[in-house]
């Protein structure tokens, strides 16, 4: 087959009407953003999720859902997610780029990494 035809065929495959997994993960992750998007320096802000290691996030969400981990609100939310949704979210956030605002803000990275640690480490209330 001619190279250009191959390219066309490949493009057609990519554009095939299959609801892509990455769009599913993107849409799920967007639901979290309502609460997990506070500007750097916001006191008591829930952590930014981009870049969290997937196994740790999956374990955290699963523990929240089972009420095995102290929480104010996350147990109410995690319990409504299927294990497949939790896995998809964990994979998405691990490779998601950090928002520009968080990267650029002075000391933002430091504060966010602190929040991430608080999220990932079990901690008494």
């Amino acid at each position: 087959m001619h190279a250009a035809a191959w390219l066309l065929a490949a493009t057609a495959l990519l554009a095939a009407p299959v609801w892509a997994a990455d769009t599913a993960a993107r849409d799920l992750a967007a639901t979290c953003a309502a609460c997990h998007s506070a500007p750097a320096g916001t006191p008591d802000a829930p952590p930014l999720l981009a870049g969290m290691p997937a196994p740790a996030m999956q374990a955290a969400l699963t523990a929240f859902a089972r009420r095995e981990r102290p929480a104010t609100v996350m147990h109410h939310i995690a319990a409504g997610l299927t294990s497949a949704q939790i896995a998809l979210l964990a994979q998405w956030f691990e490779s998601a780029p950090k928002p520009a605002a968080a990267r650029q803000a002075p000391q933002g990275g430091q504060e966010n990494s602190g929040a991430v640690l608080r999220f990932l480490e079990s901690q008494p209330r």
Partner: peptide
């Protein structure tokens, strides 16, 4: 504690929206 979380929630919701 939740009063502080409420203010952070408001900041986040505004940023996201």
């Amino acid at each position: 504690q939740e009063a502080r979380l409420a203010r952070a929630w408001f900041a986040s919701l505004r940023a996201d929206s």
